[in-house]
Structure formats: C-alpha cells, structure tokens
Write a protein that binds this DNA or RNA. Sequence first.
DNA 1: CGGAAATTTGAGATCACTCAATTGCGGTGG
DNA 2: CCACCGCAATTGAGTGATCTCAAATTTCCG
Lengths: 226, 226
Amino acid sequence: MPVSPETLQTIEGFRSGGRVVDAGGTIVEEHRKGSHVFTIYAGWAFRYKTLSDGRRQILSFLLPGDFVGLQDEFADGRTHGVEAVTGVALCAFPRDRLWTLFNAQPKLGYDITWLAARDEQRVDDNLVTAGRRNAQERVAMLLMHLYRRAERVGMVSEGWVEFPFTQQHLADALGLSLVHTNKTMRRLQRLGLYKLDAGWLRILEPRALEALGDYFERPIQPSPLI
Amino acid sequence: MPVSPETLQTIEGFRSGGRVVDAGGTIVEEHRKGSHVFTIYAGWAFRYKTLSDGRRQILSFLLPGDFVGLQDEFADGRTHGVEAVTGVALCAFPRDRLWTLFNAQPKLGYDITWLAARDEQRVDDNLVTAGRRNAQERVAMLLMHLYRRAERVGMVSEGWVEFPFTQQHLADALGLSLVHTNKTMRRLQRLGLYKLDAGWLRILEPRALEALGDYFERPIQPSPLI
DNA sequence: CGGAAATTTGAGATCACTCAATTGCGGTGG
DNA sequence: CCACCGCAATTGAGTGATCTCAAATTTCCG
C-alpha cells in the first residue's frame, strides 16, 4: 500500500535497527518477554509454544511483511517463542516506544492492529485445523496455506516454491506426530496432488487439495507495511 | 483501570447502542462480516468457526470486558461466528468508525489493540491444547481456565461459579468428541478434582488440575475497558 | 406429568501414536 | 573419488487413545 513520505519518516524514526538470524536460530526466546517487536523482511519463521515436557506447537508461520511481538505486549511470562526456518532478515522496534507510535501516528497504530488481527485469523484457522480436521485434511490445508502465502509475497516462480520446512516443522504445526505426518504426506504425494523435490514444492492439484482440506484462501487484500 | 471523563465521553460518542441476546442466540453470524464490533457487558459467549460439513471449533470464550470483532476488521467472508451461552448484554460500536476512534483517541486505539492481543493469547493457548494435550489435560486446562476467568470478573462466590456450559460446548472447544469429553470429565470428577452440581462448578483440587493440564494462569493484569 | 435435551455408559471400530529399523542424502575427511 | 557420518525421510508392526454408534438414564421445562 502507498505510504506518505512523512509516515515513512516516522517509521524510520521508530525503527531501532535491522537484524539477521541464521536458519534454525532463535528470534524471540520463549517465556521471556522481548524488548522489541519485529517486522520480517525476508525469510520464513514461526511462532511456537512448548509444554513443560517439551511437546511443541507451532502457532503460525511468518513471512516478509508479517509483524511479530504484539501478542506479548502485556503478557508476563508464558509468551511464545519465534524461530527462524530459513535465514531471516528483520527489523526491530523497541517495544516501549509502541505507545508513543500509536500516539504520534494513529494510522500506524491502526496498521499494526491490522497486522495483528491478520495473524490472529491465521491462528484461528490453525485452531480449527488442530481441533477438527483429520490428518489428510490437515496436511492438505497446510500445504495450500503455505503455498498461497508464499505466492502472495512473490516467492513462487513457474509454479515452484522453495519449501524449507522439515517434516518435524509441519508435524508441530499440525498437531500430529512426525511419523503420521510423513505417512499422510506420502499418501497425498502418491495420489499426485503435489510434488516435493529438493526442497521445492509444486502444487499439482490445487482444487483437490483445497477441497480435501476444506480450505479456501481469501482473495488478496492490500496490506499495510510497517 | 481508571478512565478520564473526557475519554469516557469519547467512548460514549462512539457507542451506537446496547443489545441483549438470549442464551443460545447468535451475536455475530458466521461468514458474514458484521457491521459492528462489541464489548461484552454481562454473560458468557464464545467465538467459533465451522467446517462446511458442520464440524465446529470454539476459538475462545468471552466474558464481560472482552472485545469482539476486531479479528474480522479486514476479512471478507470466512469470518468467525459469535454465540451467546447465557443471556448476554453487550455494547455495539459501528465498525466503520473504528478508524475515526483510533485517530481521535490514540489511547483508546491502543487499548483496543491490547484487548485484541489478549484474545489472541487465549487462542494461542487453545491451539496448544488442541494440538498437543491429551483428553485429560485438555479438560483439566479448560476447567481451570474458565474458573479463573470467572473469578477475575467477580463471578465466583464461596468457591462456586455458575457453569452454564453444555458438554457439547466443552467438546467443541477442546477438539474432542462429545462422548469422550464426557468420559474424561467423569474420570476427573471421580478422582475428586472438581464438582459440578446443578450448573455450578467448584474446583476441589486446583493444584492438581493445573499440574495435570500444565496450565498456570498469569497473575491478574489491569486491563482497559472500552 | 410428559417430552425434549443433556448426560452417561457400553462396545467395537479407527485413526493416530510409539517403537524400531531402514533408506536416502549432503557434507566431511581421508 | 570414496567411505563414513548425521540428520531427515520412510516404512513396518503393534498399541492405544479417541471416535462412532447405540442405548439407557437423568435433568430440565413447559
């Protein structure tokens, strides 16, 4: 979305610096309220929580343009963690200036809220998945979801997307065991619904996968950028 | 939290009127983007989504002080529904004045964002539950969660809370079948962890339930009120 | 006192899980 | 160039948790 020079300047002033995190690295440590909020510039990351015995649940995936950290704004302890899947470039904002920003530039506050609401919608969808879909439906839904999101930020070329996820990532996102995730993925692959080759994904039957997962992406919305 | 008279006036001006919904009634219809956002004044409600074949997942429960509808702000179609469990009194705000409010009263915008972030945290927790906890843990966690929340808004007296939920509600929230929810609840009851009588709940062993569910509520935070 | 809705219980079927082993692949050192 | 290592992916087998179906039983309301 178009942005005025003045707004841009405010954003610039708010920003406290970029950061790069290696693949597999920690962006925000779990259970510790970070001092910053972030915007993702490049790469894949995810938010997650773990139970005390180590079971992990991925809450949502993050792509360029996504905003992280607002969820914790008033949480003390028991916050989520954020981890990089690929190398990730991000931009950090000091959390304690968030209110200042809302005050000085209501439009930006509104935009941030917008971005936060979008993430919540994704979590809502993921909750439906974990609570009510069976394994096949879960995998179908997640593949389409990730593909469409990558598509929107221009990461698809000739129908192929880079797909840097481990099956463990997918299992943790779906609420399934690693083994069962694998078996389910193989079945869908053998049915010719998608192809996965050397870390690149191609959806062969988008309609079938969407129908299987009962999951249809909404039309693209212009989204603000912070 | 304390509020200035001026702020109060702005809120009053924003408000477009109260509404009362009967137990079981629809507050927001699913798949239709509502024209209003709401604050709950009294009663229990819940947000939910359903798959096309009718499977339903409850996303979060709502109590007095909770704010609903922001999630849909920019969604078109495929939005959540909101339904009343008990009779519910609420206050409606026209959605299209939301931006005006952010602009005129950044503090209120900030507060709204705060409330939305709190709901997202709850959804995050519920996703962990649906994805990674077994039936016992889920029930234990949900009972404690609902009890604590009721406690915070002063709905507990002498250790008893009114508990208006049907086992179907709980099952839909937990991602379990009705039958299995029932069997699990009976087991925890027989273990003497809680008591349920004529629609009133009493937690007998809070520590045990918290430990079982690996779920410990955060200390109370002062929260804004819209 | 009905009648409908909610709860409870039993039984058998399934889906997903755990355990265990094998295969495939990319990188590393010889 | 090849043997070897470690991690991810794959597969098989058996178990177990949860589901579905079906039938009481109880509670709630009018």
